[in-house]
Design a protein around this nucleic acid. Structure first.
Lengths: 226, 226
DNA sequence: CGTCATTTTGACCAGGGTCAAGACTCGTGG
DNA sequence: CCACGAGTCTTGACCCTGGTCAAAATGACG
């Protein structure tokens, strides 16, 4: 039986609100801070913990033996990260911005004794992960560069966009290289894609990290057809 | 509490042996046959069952709204298929060759009451699925056409290759178009890739569906570097 | 104001997609 | 038994998307 400790001091509420489908869980483990540069875990690490992002954004990445990087996912508040296989983490996990994560014992994934509520939440999250990855397969395998970028921005807008007067404001915590490595492109191609979307009047860039989506339906169309 | 029925007549042992890491489970549900052309389930179907492949090979595929196909996975004996999200299947599932599958109630994924053994096996399979998908991301996002094909053949050889006198014999139950849609390529590129591997002395083709891997280490090298 | 990292833009080129034609296999029917 | 046709696979010619290389713009920071 787990010892129940009081929750750590109230979850810091940052710029990244909790996602709508978030599952709230009481947990005996204190939240812990994450900061850019320091890895939460690395490929090959023994997986003692899974984490739920409370605030901030994490980046999962995997490497080829020849050093090429593939960004597996960006993880936003309310989402879980660190699903192990054979008790071992499968990729590197780093924070893009300072934030807080809530650890959960990895054993709760396979063992329903202890906290059944946590167990159910973790399994549900794993299934959601599988679905998200299947959708990303289509993006990587069957979409052009501009379609990939549009699909990416559209998905991010749904997760982290702030709608003001019919215009969606979107902050990108990741750099162009991160986006490129997520979409299977180069930074140059991502940059060119941004320029095209800007020239088409679909988005507006305040600076490389902050943009406004002027025409959401055009963006969604660009994500599908070209 | 589940009603325990006797197992269906002995599992037919076909050309595709059970994978080494297979998890044996007693189950109350009868095995069912699958044949090419008939879908086991389709994208959007209510997910009442998951399936463990006993014999045969299945193909999971997903479609763009514009009709482009992405093959998500090929599923070999011993592997599970049909992980739902929100109670719904996420892609189409068809058999490539006649075979048998063992159904498991989808509820056993999220509900630990009933059969805890099945539950644990399904969760473990889901985690294995996540790992396999992460590896495929690297293939789709960061490998050239020839690297993808080599990586594909190498992976298949590990799963389904038959070693005879130091030469790995491999039967491909899927057509070139299936391979292409799995690797994010075209049939022509897959075909050219096969020719290159053949001309390099790495593989030998008896016919399009049957090949021998003459130099496994060269194949693995081609999968990584080029 | 200088340095450094990131982003953008341009010029060039090649990997792989597209289109088209042949080769090969297999099933069907005359 | 052979002709025919459909489907799959292979090969060739061409060209476009997007990668590569290089340089200029932009911005952060000491």
């Amino acid at each position: 039986m787990y010892v129940t400790l009081p929750d750590s001091p109230a979850a810091p509420v940052g710029q990244w609100g909790e996602a709508k489908h978030s599952i709230r869980l009481r947990s005996p483990i204190h939240q812990q801070p994450v900061s850019p540069g320091a890895a939460l875990f690395r490929d090959g690490d023994e997986a003692r913990w899974l984490y739920k992002v409370v605030t901030g954004v994490l980046r999962l990445s995997s490497f080829t033996e020849s050093g090429r990087r593939q960004v597996i996912a960006f993880v936003y508040p309310g989402e879980f990260v660190g699903f192990p296989c054979c008790g071992v983490h499968q990729c590197d996990c780093e924070a893009l911005v300072p934030g807080w994560v809530q650890p959960f014992p990895a054993a709760a994934l396979t063992d329903q004794r202890g906290d059944p509520e946590t167990h159910a939440a973790l399994v549900t999250a794993a299934l959601r992960e599988i679905r998200a990855m299947q959708e990303h397969f289509v993006t990587l395998g069957r979409k052009s560069a501009s379609e990939r970028l549009a699909a990416f921005l559209s998905a991010l807008a749904s997760r982290a966009g702030a709608e003001v007067d019919g215009v969606t404001h979107l902050h990108l915590p990741m750099c162009r290289a991160d986006i490129a490595d997520f979409l299977g492109l180069t930074t140059e191609t991502v940059s060119r894609g941004m320029t095209h979307l800007r020239q088409a009047g679909i988005i507006e860039l305040d600076d490389p990290q902050n943009l406004r989506i002027l025409d959401r339906s055009a963006l969604d169309e660009a994500a599908e057809n070209d």
